[in-house]
Amino acid sequence: MTLLSFSGFGLSFRRYHGLLASCETPVLNDIAFTIGRGEVVALVGASGSGKSLIAHAAFGILPPNARMHGSICLDGQPVDERTLPALRGRRMALVPQSISHLEPLARCAKQLRWAARRAGRPTDRETLARHLEAFGLDGDAAKAFPHQLSGGMARRMMMAIATVGDADLLIADEPTSGLDDENAEIVLSKLRGLADQEKGVLLITHSLAAALPYADRVCLIRNGRMEGEEAACAFDGAGEGLRSAYARALWQALPQNGFQVAHHA
């Protein structure tokens, strides 16, 4: 069952050239994919390919000079600025890219309570402590300010805050950047676990290799365009099961595979 769908989606920025003349710079084009319940869909692209903007567009937090076209739907209902306030935190939640998205002057427990209250969820101490425990976070972590947490704990804290509203759809923006393998595995298997509880997860990452063991499907983004969608299990062997030549070239360029530079148009 489809939870979130992007169709014919594109994004451009209005930029000034000189003092008053402005022009539209397209950054995303022809983005179309869906996420169903129980699925982890990985959106993979190099940094600067525009993949984070897809998450920001879904939550309506793009900069003011951005222009969108195409449509974003959640459960068949359009996602736009009229419907977003009721959706954010309740139906869909964002795990942001860095700790700077948390309020630096409030303790983590307080921010978790804010998120629960906004989503209309119980805010009593026990419920919240149990929720944190599920992410391996204890009372000390709850009492800490965001900057006092280590990289891995901060990531888990942001995931705890994002999931406290029990949203159906979770979008995680680069949840493993800056983490070592061990912490990255903890975070990714948490996301997988959420999908196994019939939630939909969009995993935005630059690392194809890290995403593959946890994703069901992979959408490849290059220079603002979709370069095809592949089943995660097709990334195997020499990549015979992959549909697009680009996906095969990426797969063969991984150091654990051939580390080959295939000449791809």
């Binding site: 600067g48 630059h206 290799a209 070239a249 990426l250 797969w251 360029a253 150091p255 080959q260 530079v261």
Partner: peptide, 13 residues
């Protein structure tokens, strides 16, 4: 780290 595998392989080669 932030590059796609193709670019990564090209630069390292």
């Amino acid at each position: 780290a932030p590059l796609d595998p193709l670019t990564q392989a090209q630069i390292w080669m």
